[in-house]
Amino acid sequence: MRTTVFRALVLVVLLLLWEIATRLAGNTFFPPPSVIVTRMHAMWFSGPPGTFFLTDLAIGNILPSLGRMALGFAGGALAGVLLGLAVGLSARAYDYLDGVLQFLRAIPPPALVTVFLVVFGFGLRMQLAFIVFSIVWPVLLNTADGARSVEPLHLETCQAFRLSRAERLLRVVLPSALPKMFAGLRLALSLSLIVMVFSELLPGTTNGIGFQLTDAYATFDLPAMWAGIVLLGVLGYLLNEVFLIVERRVLGWHHAAQRLVD
């Protein structure tokens, strides 16, 4: 309770400082937060109740962005989990592929944008492929690591009770890999927001938060540009909170058992 109050207090104080500093500076490049928030409201959240107060601009830009991100994240997460399990289940596959995977993971995704443009051209397909490719590695590597570190006695127990391969995979290996898998997924979630925006900054985009950002910059509409930045920050924060709620539900057993060990 105290922590919550102090957290809110810190936020309020920082916002006030920001407001005062920008007002004193009077620089058009740095509008005060009150202006930014007013702009966010006018631009996105002053619509009719029928559309949950979303304006046409919000529906036309925020929703497509979130859609791209959700599709890219889902695709990358699914591919990462499946490939990660496949790699993690075979000690040999892991040993052979580990170097290659680390190499692929180490490439900063923006560096590959030109390659994706060549292969997929401009547009949604390229954006999705770009998000998927960027986030698949942390999920894959973490899942593989998790699948490899199954408690040996758990595996022996499977053997002693003659569980089938499918049972062992679904009921023992997969849950064992979950804690590490979730660490990878959380990383992938924040990464997918970043690459989503990046992919929308590229030519060939006609909507999206990233598109609005470049558009606002091009027309020197600085409050709108800042509105986009703040919106992305808020989205990133909210997505992480939702993810934590899901994680707490799925990994409740793990956290509770961890607490006992500590």
Binding site: E151, L153, H154, E156, T157, A160, R162, V172, P175, W253
Partner: peptide, 18 residues
């Protein structure tokens, strides 16, 4: 078949997620 094992280390033989 029809053989069951009880291991010493129960904490690592039971599955914590079940």
């Amino acid at each position: 078949d029809n053989l069951a094992v009880v291991f010493q280390d129960y904490s690592r033989s039971l599955f914590p997620w079940m």
